[in-house]
Simulated assay, not measured.
Amino acid sequence: MDLTLLRTFVMVHRAGSFTRAAALLGLSQPAVTSQIRTLERQLGRPLFLRQARGVTPTTVGDELAQRAAPHLDALVEITERGLDERDGIRTLHVAGPPEFVSARVLPALTPLVAQGFAVRASLLCDPTETLDGLAAGHHDLAVATARPRGGLFAATPLCDEEHVLVAAPRWAARLSPDVLLNKGAVVLEQLPVVEVHESLPFVTRYWTAVFESKPAAAATVIAPDLRAVLECAASGAGLAVLPRYLCEADLAAGRLVALLDPPVPPLRTYFLVVRTGTLALPHILRAHERLLRAAGDW
């Protein structure tokens, strides 16, 4: 049986779509469709049920994927090991939110450098871009703020991120926690806000969880990096919602003040994501395990 047909079949099975698989393989959608039809003719059985949005594997398709995928992944591993022997070094490609990758992921992976690893980081604000790059093979590991769906990825919860409502001391001195708890949305509309996007993703998540309402105000400062948001807030530009790990030192130093201490603070879960089957590769498995161990202290 042609391994090219099996490789295309496994990619379609994992991607759940001929179009998606074609993009990942660098082929046209008609070429992928033709290869799957050829494989189905050779086997004499349908492998996928065509639907309006993607495809669903038949029982035969699932069985073939379970039998074929591990062997195809093993061939990839052999190829990767061969590259390692020639190059003498293993390059690990990671991607995710700029602040989290910078503050958490890269320091945790640094010890691998002494073990013959090189690390390349892609700092990406757009989670869709991150997962698309992972699917296309541009990254080995990715950090995502939502569990991806489908069989193309394998995701493991990494850690929870607590969000804190903060402002510079001069703003905090004007605000009462009781007023914020009772009239949070109204207060927000009267104060300048620093955010990463016009849609106020962090502020909206916080207000929904704590005040059970949505903010109506527009941001005064937009900076698409939480580290920039932190500096703007600390300099007095307005209030902001930040991950605790990012602003902990500034809270301790008094540059920022936590405006509220809700009984149940808003949380966001990070997921460590790989392409299905790639944990069979030793360098990805080692980095994956190291990040999960490090996350126990986060």
Rank of each mutant, 00 (worst) to 15 (best):
G137W: 09
V187R: 09
R174K: 14
R293V: 15
L39N: 06
V229F: 10
V193G: 05
A15G: 07
G61R: 00
R286Q: 15
P157A: 10
L256W: 01
G44S: 05
L131Y: 05
V119C: 02
T208S: 14
R37H: 12
T204Y: 00
T276G: 09
E40D: 09
P30W: 03
R290H: 05
R104N: 12
S102G: 07
V113S: 02
G44W: 05
D261F: 05
L131I: 08
G88N: 09
G116E: 07
F153P: 00
V164R: 06
I36W: 01
R290F: 03
L134V: 11
L292T: 07
V166I: 05
T269A: 12
L292V: 10
E289Q: 10
E63D: 12
V143S: 02
P169V: 09
Q29E: 14
L259S: 01
H138P: 04
E198M: 04
P177L: 11
D140I: 05
T128S: 15
P57G: 03
V32M: 09
T59K: 07
L72R: 04
A173R: 14
W298F: 13
S17W: 02
R37Y: 04
T156Y: 02
S199F: 00
G277I: 11
E99I: 07
R81A: 11
D87P: 03
Y270K: 04
V186Y: 13
R53V: 14
T220P: 10
Y245K: 00
T276D: 07
N182G: 01
F271C: 04
A74D: 10
G44F: 04
T220V: 10
T4E: 08
R227E: 14
A69S: 09
P97R: 08
G88R: 10
F153C: 03
L251S: 01
L272S: 02
A15C: 14
W171F: 15
L43W: 07
R20N: 13
Q42S: 11
L267N: 04
T208I: 07
R293K: 13
V10C: 15
P177N: 07
H197W: 06
S28E: 06
H138K: 12
K214H: 14
M11Y: 07
P265W: 04
R227P: 06
R86G: 11
A31C: 02
G238A: 04
A114L: 12
R7P: 01
P97Y: 04
E231P: 06
R227I: 03
T38E: 10
E129A: 13
L47S: 02
T204P: 00
V196C: 15
L175F: 11
D62G: 03
S213Q: 14
V113N: 00
G151P: 01
I89E: 13
V186P: 02
P98T: 09
R293L: 14
L39T: 08
L181R: 06
S235Q: 14
R7M: 05
R86L: 14
R244D: 01
A142E: 04
